[in-house]
Amino acid sequence: MVVIYWLLIAVMVVGVIGSVVPAIPGSSLILIAVIAWGIISSSFAAIKIPLLVTGIVLILSMGVDFLAGYLGAKQAGASKWGQIGALVGLFLGIFGLLPALPFGGPLLGMLIGPLLGAIVGEYLYQRNLGAAVKAGIGITVGTLVGNLIQGILAISALITFIWSTWPQVYSG
């Protein structure tokens, strides 16, 4: 039972990483691990609070994900073109050409891709390089702040789970 507990915590750590890194499941993976522990331990009473916290974290993370990018784009005066460019740049950065770089790979592509994509998208729309760069930076900063908030939320879900279930696993 202890081995399964630590395997589920490892899955939750991947979920914490996924809450910050796109293309890896985040809070939903943590929620699945919490539910799995409830089934395995046959004690849903022990996971009532972690289940509630993780459900709230999942809902908040989805809201933060949408809101952070939107607010960053709005603050920088970005259009839909810049937002679409950032999304295309993110996918190209992670899966496209940027992973072939000699250093950084997909992680570097995750940072550079949305920035370049937003700049290109915004430039195609406005034909103003200064405004395009400003929009690209705004979208990127908004996304990074959103990812940081999602990471903090995911860590709180993990800590709540450990805090609530530790006595159940290690009680004498």
Rank of each mutant, 00 (worst) to 15 (best):
W6K: 03
L29D: 07
W37H: 10
I112Q: 05
F44N: 03
P114I: 11
L144R: 00
M110A: 13
G77I: 04
G82K: 10
G89D: 07
T54K: 08
L67P: 02
I149G: 00
V20P: 02
Q168S: 10
Q75R: 14
V57C: 03
A76R: 09
Y70R: 02
G105M: 08
G113T: 01
V2W: 02
A46C: 02
G93W: 12
L31M: 15
I9D: 02
S171D: 12
S43K: 13
I137C: 06
L111M: 11
I56N: 01
M12I: 08
V53W: 05
Q83K: 12
G69P: 02
K134L: 11
F66N: 10
V133F: 14
L58K: 00
G77H: 04
S164L: 03
A86R: 06
V64M: 00
F95R: 04
V20C: 03
I59D: 05
Y125G: 01
G72T: 08
P102K: 03
L7N: 01
A78C: 09
L98F: 13
F66L: 12
I159Y: 12
P99Q: 04
G82D: 12
K134M: 07
L129R: 12
G105S: 06
V169I: 15
T140L: 14
L97V: 15
V57S: 04
G93Q: 10
Y5C: 03
V145Q: 00
A73E: 01
S61Y: 00
G18P: 09
G18M: 09
A132F: 12
L58A: 13
I56W: 08
V34S: 10
S79Y: 06
L52K: 12
A154F: 09
A154Q: 08
I24E: 12
A23E: 13
S27T: 14
N128E: 15
S79M: 08
V11T: 08
I40A: 10
W37K: 02
M62P: 00
L129S: 11
I139M: 01
T140Y: 07
G96L: 06
M110V: 06
G18H: 08
A23D: 11
I32W: 03
M12S: 14
I30G: 04
N128R: 15
T165V: 12
G55W: 08
L115E: 04
A10L: 15
L153V: 01
V64L: 00
A154H: 05
G96P: 04
L87M: 15
G93A: 11
Q75S: 09
L58P: 01
P114Y: 09
I119C: 07
I24Y: 13
I137R: 11
L98G: 02
Y125M: 09
